[in-house]
Design a protein around this nucleic acid. Structure first.
Lengths: 117, 117
DNA sequence: TTTGAATACCTCACAGTTTGATGTTGACAA
DNA sequence: TTGTCAACATCAAACTGTGAGGTATTCAAA
């Protein structure tokens, strides 16, 4: 962040790392495929959060490389899909990320909660 | 986020935009100087959050440029300090950012809260 | 039957952002 | 006079979501 990088705020606020948290959380419930995950995040958060496919797909590839998820090809309803499932390692990461999210939320709440202006 | 950008996770999670939120919140209570803000974030969040001077100082410069805060030089306790105070514009931005933080938190809670694995 | 919408996957340039290192000056205590 | 803290400042490096672009398939409507 520099004076010559004028912080134009075209970028999202507070969303850093959130996609990974949500993807892992969804896969902890059941195996899902990429496109389904994109839609699930929209619907389950009532459109509050929405991450593009350009964010989710690369994330899934990264997670697989890191052995946090595994994938298998499946033919369903005349569609070919890549289903992803959480590994034991992925579950650990989910727990760590969840704890971190709670920590940050608590930190923000502590400071924001002080006497009002 | 690319496959060749291995996402080494040396960077912070969930902190995107948080410094601006906290700085504005602190200044809504009373005028403060940079170094004091850095320390206040640490102590008020019980060390949960800590942003370096390399983050806070440039932010203050940006906020001043955007007329979200104003500053004045003050000599206190034999020290020369730049005190910053919130402008009306800054108050509006604080309100907007606070609302956004609450929105994101709610979105995450909605998805995370679903049935456990 | 071909048009279009929805499904399903993929990649990448861009613009931010925080970190951590580095530097300066001055006050004050050991 | 050495070291620590206060107070300010700058910047390269690394990370990360957006928005736009691309391909291919399925299926319903015109």
């Amino acid at each position: 962040m520099y004076d010559n990088a004028p912080m134009k705020k075209t970028n999202p606020s507070f969303l850093n790392g959130v996609p990974e948290l949500l993807v892992l959380r969804l896969l902890a419930r059941r195996e899902m495929y990429g496109y389904e995950i994109v839609k699930a995040i929209q619907s389950e958060t009532r459109e509050i959060l929405s991450f593009g496919e350009g964010c989710i797909y690369p994330y899934l590839h990264y997670l697989e490389e890191e052995k946090l998820v595994s994938s298998r090809r499946k033919e369903v309803e005349g569609r070919s899909r890549n289903y992803y499932q959480l590994t034991a390692r992925g579950k650990k990461r989910l727990d760590a990320l969840t704890a971190e999210w709670n920590r940050v939320s608590e930190g923000v709440a502590l400071l924001m909660g002080g006497q009002h202006a």
